[in-house]
Computed example of a mutant assay.
Amino acid sequence: MKAIGFKQSLPINEEESFIAFETEIPKPEGRDLLIKVQANSVNPVDYKIRQNAVKDQVLDSPKIIGWDAVGIVEAVGEEVSLFNVGDAVFYAGDLTRSGSNAEYQLVDERIVGRKPRNLSIAEATAIPLTSLTAYETIFDRFKYNPATDKGRILLILAGAGGVGSIAIQLAKKLTDLTVIATASRKETVEWCKQMGADSVVNHYDLKDELAAKGIEQVDFIFDCVDLKSYWETAAELIKPQGHIVSITGSSDPLNLNLLKNKSVTFSWELMYTRSMYETADMQRQHNILNHLAELLEEGTIQSTLTTTFNGFTVANLKEAHKLQESGKSIGKNVILF
Results as ranks from 00 to 15, higher is better:
Thr137Leu: 03
Gly327Pro: 09
Ser41Phe: 08
Leu289Cys: 05
Asn13Arg: 08
Val201Trp: 12
Lys332Phe: 10
Asn261Met: 06
Ile65Ala: 09
Gly299Tyr: 06
Asn84Phe: 01
Lys228Val: 04
Leu317Gly: 02
Pro28Met: 07
Asp226Met: 02
Pro44Tyr: 08
Glu109Cys: 13
Ile127Thr: 03
Lys173Ala: 10
Met195Leu: 14
Glu103Ser: 15
His203Leu: 05
Lys322Trp: 00
Val70Ser: 08
Val42Met: 02
Gly164Trp: 12
Lys260Asp: 01
Ala92Val: 12
Asn202Arg: 15
Thr307His: 11
Ala102Val: 05
Val189Asn: 01
Leu177Arg: 13
Ala88His: 13
Ile335Lys: 03
Glu103Lys: 15
Gly30Thr: 00
Arg97Cys: 08
Tyr91Ile: 03
Thr300Lys: 15
Leu256Ile: 15
Val225Met: 14
Tyr272Pro: 03
Leu59Met: 15
Ser81Ile: 07
Leu296Glu: 09
Arg185Gly: 06
Asp219Glu: 08
Val45Thr: 14
Val264Thr: 13
Thr23Leu: 00
Leu10Phe: 12
Leu157Met: 14
Asn255Met: 04
Val163His: 11
Lys2Thr: 01
Leu256Asp: 12
Ile168Cys: 14
Cys224Ser: 12
Asn287Ala: 11
Gly327Trp: 07
Glu16Ala: 09
Asn287His: 02
Ile335Phe: 00
Ile49Cys: 08
Asp149Trp: 07
Val58Glu: 13
Ile301Gln: 04
Gly151Cys: 07
Lys213Tyr: 02
Lys63Pro: 01
Lys213Met: 14
Asp281Leu: 10
Ala147Val: 03
Asn261Trp: 09
Ser275Gln: 13
Glu29Val: 06
Lys7Ser: 01
Glu236Cys: 09
Gln105Tyr: 06
Gly30Arg: 07
Ser250Leu: 09
Ser81Asp: 08
Leu155Asp: 12
Val37Gly: 11
Ile121Phe: 09
Asp208Phe: 10
Thr182Pro: 01
Asp140Ala: 14
Leu119Lys: 10
Gly331Cys: 03
Glu297Asn: 15
Tyr104Val: 07
Val179Cys: 03
Asp87Phe: 13
Ala235Gly: 13
Phe6Tyr: 15
Ser199Asp: 06
Ala234Glu: 15
Asp140Val: 03
Gly113Thr: 04
Val334Pro: 00
Phe142Trp: 11
Phe222Gln: 10
Leu206Tyr: 05
Lys228Gly: 05
Glu278Pro: 00
Glu78Phe: 07
Asp108Pro: 03
Ile19Ser: 06
Thr130Phe: 03
Val58Pro: 00
Val76Cys: 14
Thr133Phe: 01
Thr306Gln: 13
Asp226His: 05
Val85Cys: 06
His286Cys: 01
Val163Asp: 01
Ala320Phe: 03
Glu22Thr: 14
Gly77Cys: 07
Asp149Asn: 14
Ser267Gly: 05
Leu154Glu: 01
Tyr104Ser: 11
Lys150Met: 02
Ser251Gly: 12
Ala320Leu: 08
Ser184Ile: 02
Arg185Phe: 00
Gly86Ser: 10
Lys239Asp: 04
Asp205Gly: 05
Gln57Glu: 14
Leu254Ala: 10
Asp140Gly: 01
Leu170Lys: 13
Glu232Leu: 15
Gly311Pro: 00
Gln217Tyr: 04
Val201Thr: 14
Lys143Ser: 09
Gly164Met: 12
Val218Leu: 09
Ile35Val: 15
Phe309Gln: 02
Leu119Cys: 03
Ala122Lys: 00
Asp176Arg: 06
Gly242Lys: 06
